[in-house]
Amino acid sequence: MKPDTEFLILGGGIAGLATAIALQKIGKDFLVAEASEAFRPVGAGIALAANAMKALSKIGAADAVIPKGSRLADFSIYDDKGKLISKTHAHNPDYGNFTIHRADLHAALLSFLEEKKLLTGKRSKRFVKGPKRYTVFFEDGSEISASHLIVAEGIHSPIRKQLLPDTNPRFAGYTCWRGIADNGQLHIDETFETWGRKGRIGIVPLRNKQIYWFACVNAPHADSDKKNFKKEDILEIFGDFHSSISEVLKATYAPIIWNDILDLPPLSRFAFEDILLIGDAAHATTPNMGQGACMALEDAAVLMACLKKNPSTSTAFLDFEKRRLTRTRQIVIQSWTLGKVAQLENPIGIWLRNFAFRVTPASVNQKQLEKLYNVDLD
């Protein structure tokens, strides 16, 4: 029996949609199976660093995304009194760094794909391997067969759990709220974070007079009280931070999103014959370096290159694994470490951290950024 599709992409988030665009670009047959009843982005604002923009360019989607984003030139870190801790010039002359609302990025990616290629309400349960195809069984009772599976269904992927039963997300030790505020009266044009003993908060200007913000505090895992926090509760925590913080929180108008911060301890493999893990299903990272979506977009571009180079798909998947394991592992570890440093509560530790950041030469920060942005997608 002929498979329903050549490639079945499980998950319709950034990784899944970008990969679908990449497969389409090189003439591959595919279907995207999304767990939700509709293609709805989860989250508020995200950063697309120069490496992500390079990946979008490779798959042919950059021109659709750039008009929806705002260019990011610099990134600053302040203490809770508003004193500068660190400033990094993030300008990249070749591809640029952008901030964008996740919904706008999602819409831009969806615009490249035909509706008949996109299935919703397909939450995977398990797969079975046959002689020449895989069959995926879904919670709605349906099944789809494919020659190759690309697993892009996120950190809680049941298919990854079937392949690697001992892999579990880990809690970073802090929880996070995200929101959108009105920038019409505030006119904030700087992207920055503020670090204090009570937690940290980040401010990211977007297009259309919007601000994306996030606030993180150390907390127990799955603290149900935090889930129901409103902006007044968050103001109570951060109200004595410098004035820009309270102004942004007061201007918040969209529903606040809450979640604990999790990542996936680095895996030893992504490829399993004709099954490939990508995106958060493979290398979910904490958001401290703003690289989660960037890594997902890189995955799509690298996979496209591997499939073009290798006539065998299973060989292409192994090639992808070889090219991606070290880079994604490094970013997961670095982001985890940075989060621990940013969430310090001890006054002496905070003073030492801030002093170290202030005396670090700008050239050091610049070299670290260049290393991050310099990714081989060919």
Rank of each mutant, 00 (worst) to 15 (best):
292 G>K: 02
360 T>D: 05
361 P>V: 09
249 L>G: 01
343 Q>E: 06
329 R>T: 13
297 L>K: 04
338 L>V: 10
258 W>L: 12
274 D>Y: 11
263 D>Q: 12
335 S>Y: 11
296 A>W: 05
319 D>L: 02
311 P>H: 07
270 F>D: 00
365 N>P: 04
310 N>V: 14
279 G>K: 10
319 D>C: 04
324 R>W: 07
324 R>G: 03
329 R>I: 11
371 K>I: 11
334 Q>G: 08
270 F>V: 09
308 K>D: 05
321 E>H: 14
266 P>V: 13
322 K>S: 13
298 E>N: 02
307 L>K: 06
243 S>I: 14
256 I>A: 00
321 E>V: 14
348 I>K: 06
255 P>E: 00
329 R>Q: 06
280 D>F: 04
310 N>I: 14
252 T>V: 13
363 S>Y: 05
266 P>G: 14
260 D>N: 05
261 I>V: 15
310 N>W: 11
295 M>I: 12
358 R>A: 00
315 T>G: 06
263 D>I: 14
243 S>Q: 07
275 I>R: 06
367 K>R: 15
324 R>M: 03
266 P>E: 11
308 K>G: 10
356 A>M: 03
356 A>Q: 02
261 I>M: 09
300 A>E: 02
326 T>P: 02
252 T>R: 10
346 N>E: 09
314 S>I: 14
284 A>G: 04
321 E>K: 15
313 T>R: 14
364 V>H: 12
284 A>K: 07
319 D>Y: 06
287 P>E: 06
313 T>N: 09
249 L>F: 03
276 L>I: 12
353 R>L: 10
291 Q>R: 08
249 L>D: 00
315 T>L: 07
349 G>A: 14
337 T>C: 08
375 V>G: 08
370 E>W: 06
354 N>E: 08
369 L>D: 04
285 T>N: 01
319 D>S: 02
312 S>P: 07
349 G>D: 06
368 Q>P: 00
364 V>G: 08
353 R>N: 11
359 V>Y: 07
291 Q>W: 10
293 A>G: 04
247 E>K: 14
317 F>G: 01
368 Q>R: 13
321 E>D: 08
361 P>Q: 02
343 Q>R: 09
